[in-house]
Design a protein around this nucleic acid. Sequence first.
DNA 1: TAGGCCATCTGGTCCT
DNA 2: AGGACCAGATGGCCTA
Length: 215
Amino acid sequence: MAEKPMKSEPMEIESRPAAIGTPTTSIPRSNSIKRSRKSAHPSKTIQTPSEHLFINCSTNTSCLNQIDESITNTIDDETSNIPTANTPDEEDVITSGDEESTVAYRNVTSKRPRLTYDKRLEANARERERVHNLTAAFEALRQVIPMYGDQPKLSRLSILRIACSYVLVLGALNEIDFSEGQNAYTFNECFHMLSSTILNELRRKKSNNQLNRND
DNA sequence: TAGGCCATCTGGTCCT
DNA sequence: AGGACCAGATGGCCTA
């Protein structure tokens, strides 16, 4: 699979919004909301030298030294631009290697000590690798589920839905109920379900767009 | 242009 | 203790 170019720059760690104590829900965001969000976001409104380095180098370990060198020189200036949502007593200090950087954080209630800069980069890399593996697994699954001729790339959700139906078909074909006896569908029912699922997933995008136009 | 989808970062929690 | 896993937030790309 072709490696997709990196699309989003890492956010500056000091500009991340807090999550603790303010449970949030994932809501659909329109582009206008996205745009207002972008314009309000310090990482978009304030271009800092270290931000440019994050954009270009965050996935390239050879750039880490460069980041380390630059962040010490720029972070003081950056912290002066951080939104004032957090109160002074909510600020925290992290250290990066031999150098100490003062960074504003909202929450310092974690049981575990905050990761150092280097450890954070390592954790990011591991998380990236984990998600890449997940993406590869979805791609592998996509390649073994039945498809009808040429069709657009399926979303992960569509892959899962079709795969579920496919498993039921295979189970019915072998007289095995993979659904733990909850369904006990006949083969014909399973096959019809699979066909419907595939068609529905292919139509879904179109239907959604039509619904959006009617709203 | 709106909305869907996805990559990435981040902090909290789980697990070994 | 530290890595794995998870969910929320954010922003870019793409399509209708």
